[in-house]
């Protein structure tokens, strides 16, 4: 059950972007989305690939700015915004895809309004109202954790949405899912679940979350997507260092 390392061009672009992000979070160094993607201004196919990679990585593509509460560069935001706009969820898209897109729009709006206002959920209702969350409400803990891990970009400070509400209501179930994912060597799911867990109250102390995240990083950190989630979790654990 190791993550496969098949390298389609898109997989490679996603890995590359995740690697840049993880390393920026780890080092505290500057991150430029527009610079982080090779040949973004090059051939049209490469630009398309870069945008697709941003869509796959989702709101995490600008995670350093979000975690540092720092304004993003204009061309980074422009690239991020283009990915948001050219990849709207299809009519029959999965709830995860719809939510992941919603998270990108939400993040774009926050980073576009550096005044710090507009974080009030009520003020953001209207056309950008949250997608429905009913699909997640009563699922078994195994499914819950799997879906939450796919939506790990929603696990950010002041996470305030219906998906986060579901996670907050079920800390023991998410913790069980973390154990399940580690047991099955699904390091990406484990890292995503671990990232949620650092934000939740009521996680059983016997889980050993800190050691668990270290273990996941050690065993699965060769995959940059895993490394990115672990780094995100460490930042959240440290209280979103400036």
């Amino acid at each position: 059950m190791e993550q496969s390392s098949t390298s389609t061009p898109l997989t490679g672009a996603v890995q590359g972007l995740a690697s840049e992000l993880a390393s920026a979070l780890r080092s505290g160094g500057r991150f430029r989305l527009a610079a982080g993607i090779p040949d973004v201004h090059g051939a049209e196919a490469n630009a398309g690939l870069a945008l697709a990679a941003v869509r796959v990585v989702g709101a995490d593509a600008v995670l350093p700015s979000v975690l540092r509460r720092a304004p993003a560069e204009a061309d980074d935001l422009a690239l991020f915004g283009r990915a948001v706009h050219i990849y709207p969820p299809a009519a029959d898209a999965s709830p995860v895809s719809v939510w992941s897109h919603w998270a990108m729009k939400q993040t774009l709006r926050r980073l576009d309004a550096p005044s710090g206002g507009g974080s009030d959920r009520a003020a953001e209702a209207g056309p950008e109202a949250e997608p429905q969350v009913a699909w997640l409400a009563d699922v078994p803990w195994q499914v819950l954790t799997h879906q939450l891990a796919l939506l790990a970009p929603l696990a950010v400070p002041e996470a305030d949405c219906a998906v986060a509400d579901v996670a907050r209501d079920r800390p023991v179930d998410v913790a069980r899912g973390f154990v399940r994912a580690v047991r099955r060597r699904d390091w990406l799911q484990a890292a995503g679940a671990g990232r949620w867990l650092v934000l939740l109250d009521g996680v059983p102390a016997t889980l050993g979350l800190g050691a668990g995240l270290e273990f996941v990083a050690h065993m699965g950190g060769d995959d940059p997507r895993v490394a990115l989630q672990v780094e995100a979790a460490r930042h959240l654990q440290a209280g979103a260092r400036p």
Binding site: V172, A175, R176, V179, T206
Partner: peptide, 13 residues
């Protein structure tokens, strides 16, 4: 208490 929390995971596995 410990078993009540974690046994479901091991059963599943």
């Amino acid at each position: 208490d410990y078993l009540a929390v974690w046994l479901p995971v091991w059963l599943d596995d």
